[in-house]
């Protein structure tokens, strides 16, 4: 579903964000990308959305090589990739319903689709009763649920989340993780960039750790830091576990 092949990204100021990175994520996986600030997590997410282009290497998303993708095709790529951010990015003057509906309207979906899909997804994220509230009237957790609803309403193949719980308390963050897990169970591939150690440890899903733009660990059912009991799991073992 997602494949990085020897990807290197150097910013104009000379900072190497990603260094010769290769990574495979299969359809339906739930993956945490962890690492300290500046380790290249956000750059990876931005490259998957084609907001950034790598300097070297190739990237495939949903079976399509996206580096060569002509600029006019990029919006169509993004329809297959939902994305959630730390700051929610909701439109403050639109209601919950309108915020989610907006994502369908601007890609030209007919009204009938909007009227059936939006209530369904609001039900999924547990906000059916708050459909007419403005984002300012919601808690942080609820706002992030709206953002997830907006990212998922078009049923994308992949859901990316960049520090989705960065602004939330631990209890609320767990609720968001449960929601992302539910979405993952529908078959959507979920990739989360985070440095929320407690959540990663709690979820016990695949963990890819980056440091200075390189993968230093790729572990199935991993934790945030190196697992004291098992130690780092070699990549070959990860692949073997996944295929079993």
């Amino acid at each position: 579903m997602i494949r990085f092949e020897n990807v290197t990204k150097v910013y104009k100021n000379g900072t190497v964000a990603v260094r010769n990175l290769s990574l495979d994520i299969q359809k339906g996986e739930f993956v945490f990308i962890v690492g300290p600030s500046g380790s290249g997590k956000t750059t990876c997410i931005r490259m998957l959305l084609r907001e950034e282009l790598p300097d070297r290497g190739r990237i495939w998303v949903a079976g399509r090589e996206i580096i060569q993708l002509p600029k006019w095709r990029v919006p169509y790529l993004r329809r297959n990739v939902g994305c959630v951010f730390q700051d929610f990015r909701l439109l403050p003057n639109k209601t919950v319903f309108q915020n989610v509906a907006f994502a369908l309207e601007v890609i030209g979906r007919p009204k009938s689709v909007v009227e059936t899909q939006v209530p369904q997804v609001l039900e999924l994220v547990g906000l059916a009763k708050k459909r007419d509230n403005l984002p300012g009237e919601l808690s942080g957790g609820e706002q992030q649920r709206v953002a997830i609803a907006r990212a998922f309403v078009n049923r994308p193949l992949i859901l990316l989340a960049d520090e989705p719980t960065g602004n939330l308390d631990p209890g609320t963050s767990q609720g968001i993780m449960r929601l992302l897990d539910r979405i993952n169970r529908t078959g959507t591939t979920v990739v989360i960039a985070t440095h929320d150690a407690a959540l990663v440890d709690w979820m016990r899903r695949r963990v890819v750790e980056l440091d200075q733009g390189m993968i230093v660990r790729d572990q199935a059912r991993g934790v945030y830091g190196i697992d004291a009991n098992t130690g780092p799991v070699p990549r070959t073992e990860v692949v073997a576990r996944r295929s079993s």
Binding site: Y76, R78, R89, F102, V106, I107, N154
Partner: peptide, 17 residues
Amino acid sequence: RREVSVMKLVGATNWFI
């Protein structure tokens, strides 16, 4: 600008924006 950034994010075409 916020709306435009959301539109880009969810895959609105350039002409639509």
